[in-house]
Design a protein around this nucleic acid. Structure first.
Lengths: 180, 180
DNA sequence: AATTATTATTGCATTTATACTATACAAGTG
DNA sequence: CACTTGTATAGTATAAATGCAATAATAATT
């Protein structure tokens, strides 16, 4: 249920093509929601059928034709409804395949698990760097925009999250070292 | 792709019925992976077809018959393969509908968002309490078991995670208060 | 008498993942 | 100049996974 609404939210900033939406998506929401390009196109068609957005075809000679999608009144309403609707019970979930795997890692040797945790840590360090850049960019470029506080909050989450992961990884590595 | 392997991991502790698996699942993996009861049964059948597990029917007169599932050699192999296989790139993802919604919450009034964040915080406090109980239980009851370190690590993650969320929520609430 | 526990299964809709199809232009390579 | 590779562009097809709802039937518990 989130992708459709994610797209509604993005289209609310202005009409766009599926292609551009995909890029915008990958550069923003992608930090906390993932989607294949193909799914974005399909959802766009579904949303069109639902009347939440309308498509305008722009014929191009040198490139494939564009479909420019615009939020309709009904789509705007749905966005509002979704935003207002309390769904914390449904939405607050950790769903993390890495932890699932770790849960069973007693089956394989501690050596290998230490290496895995080290790679995990490196990934988090990289992600932290990325999110901090984004955070800085939002703070500098959009300061004062009515949305910027919310963008900052999500970026902050990412910052704290990866920072926490790094500390946790260190603790795990220490525990595993002691096992040997 | 995780549920099948989560089930493999649980069955590795010993043969069980779908019904019990479901309960075990809800009491352990459920913190970082969710699944409907029906899907667990479905996956069991699929895994049986795949030769990863075998079923033994136990006829009962007073209750519905049981299917007791046992890990086969092939299933054990697959579990090992999955555990050894490096998938950090795929597995390290934040996928959080709450953050998606927050990202767009500039559309609605700060008042409402403050309330939402407060409820979010309460949920995290509750989850933190729960995970701490689990953590303590694992530390006390399974100390020394070859798996217990890993169970502790996942529980620790939960602990840090919800602690972090609570701090973050406080920061968000402060920011939103300043908006008014 | 009403609810909860036991032990499943089926059907349908939605969501996600994986792979594949095309075209045009730009830029680099031999 | 011919050839390959990259990238912007705009999708389609198919399969796998997941969620949600309903159904069955008996026993134990409140």
């Amino acid at each position: 249920m989130s992708l459709k609404h994610g797209i509604l939210g993005l289209l609310n900033y202005g009409p766009t093509t599926g292609y551009d939406l995909d890029k915008i998506f990958k550069g923003s929401l992608n930090f906390f929601w993932q989607s294949q390009t193909s799914q974005i196109y399909r959802e766009l068609r579904a949303m069109e059928g639902q009347g939440w957005i309308s498509a305008e075809i722009v014929v191009q000679q040198d490139k494939p034709n564009k479909n420019i999608f615009t939020l309709t009144a009904s789509g705007k309403e749905e966005l509002q409804r979704w935003l207002m609707h309390d769904s914390i019970g449904d939405d607050i979930k950790v769903r993390d395949p890495f932890l699932v795997k770790l849960f069973f890692s007693g089956e394989i040797n501690a050596e290998a698990n230490i290496e895995t945790m080290q790679r995990f840590k490196q990934c988090c360090q990289y992600a932290l760097k990325k999110i901090n850049e984004t955070k800085k960019h939002v703070e500098d470029a959009y300061d004062g925009d009515k949305n910027s506080v919310y963008w900052e909050m999500t970026a902050s989450f990412g910052h704290y999250y990866y920072e926490m992961c790094i500390l946790w990884a260190d603790e795990c590595i220490m525990k595993l070292e002691r096992l040997k």
